[in-house]
């Protein structure tokens, strides 16, 4: 508090220097990559050179522009039926990002509510919730996705449902632990003494104290969700074609790697760099907000 006050009292120059020093330690490259992802996902319709599913049989298997036979008409080349790789990747970004955001939102809401109830009530409610959480934690997400894929058929909804079906569990675990840690604090006991309802205590007293941990976990799951979605689409259990998804684009180029490596290379690089950026940013936020969670 006092250092913030000192900064506020200090001159403009000092304040600028303070902001500069904090931002210098920001993981700039991951932030730029993720910002680019969000940007192209939102404005996909405006910036893509071609519609993602537009075929052009005369331009089949065009290499990227820096290759001898490549052309600047298709910067990253085309696939077996002449669809523009770059355009499909940009629309694929939209799929990846929307799956990740929806899954994390659902997981956060379910996990926070269940975890806070389990941590606050304890006893039998806690025991039952924790058994269910253990089951979900132990279970590979990909298998539930395959199971749901058979039952409901592959679709965007199935992917989101399947990934949310298990990803709430780490949130529940974490929130339970956090609430159990905070609930013994004096201010919670005082709130109880003045007659606050459990719901009020949970929302106004406990939640603000555990929100940092929640944000850390949310950032750290972005990469994981995108990677599982890509794996599912690669297996044909994800977003059904012709909707472009990075995972299914890699699958498309799988048997042509020696002749047309660009079909699968560029989407793989996209997956890798986005997941890497998500993990880096998650680590950085964790170290900033919640040093207790730091692992070497």
């Amino acid at each position: 508090m006092s250092s913030e006050l000192a900064i506020a009292r200090a001159g403009f120059g000092k304040r600028v220097r303070h902001i500069w020093q904090t931002s210098r330690r920001l993981p700039l490259i991951p932030i730029i990559i993720l910002a680019a992802l969000v940007f192209v996902a939102i404005f996909a319709d405006l910036i893509t050179p071609y519609p993602p599913n537009e075929m052009s049989l005369t331009d089949r298997l065009t290499p990227p522009f820096f290759m001898p036979e490549g052309s600047t008409a298709h910067l990253l080349g085309t696939d077996t039926i002449g669809r523009d790789i770059l355009s499909r990747m940009i629309f694929g970004a939209r799929i990846s990002l929307s799956v990740a955001l929806m899954v994390i939102a659902i997981a956060t809401v379910i996990g926070t509510v269940l975890g806070m109830i389990a941590g606050y009530r304890r006893g039998r409610v806690d025991a039952v919730l924790m058994r269910v959480t253990d089951a979900a934690l132990a279970f590979p997400a990909l298998l539930i996705a395959l199971l749901l894929g058979v039952v409901l058929g592959p679709s965007f909804k199935t992917v989101v449902l399947a990934l949310s079906a298990l990803s709430w569990a780490p949130y529940t675990r974490m929130m339970r632990g956090e609430v159990m840690r905070v609930r013994e604090e004096d201010f919670v006991a005082q709130a109880r003494v003045i007659g606050s309802s459990p719901a009020r205590i949970l929302i106004t007293h406990l939640f603000p104290n555990v929100v940092n941990t929640l944000i850390v976990l949310m950032t750290m799951s972005v990469g994981l969700v995108i990677l599982i979605e890509a794996s599912l689409s690669f297996l044909g259990a994800g977003i059904p074609p012709p909707t472009p998804s990075w995972g299914s684009m890699v699958a498309d180029g799988r048997n042509l790697f020696d002749r047309a490596w660009w079909i699968s290379l560029f989407p793989s690089l996209a997956i890798g760099s986005v997941v890497l950026s998500g993990n880096f940013l998650g680590d950085w936020i964790r170290d900033k907000m919640d040093p207790r969670l730091r692992q070497v």
């Binding site: 990677l227 790697f257 020696d258 997956i271 997941v275 993990n279």
Partner: peptide
């Protein structure tokens, strides 16, 4: 270790096939 967690393993498998089996 960080790279290994981020790269899609299905792509690594494809690359491995082309380098060590095809080429």
């Amino acid at each position: 270790a960080i790279l290994g967690q981020a790269l899609p393993s299905f792509w690594l498998a494809i690359v491995a096939i082309y380098i060590f089996a095809v080429w």
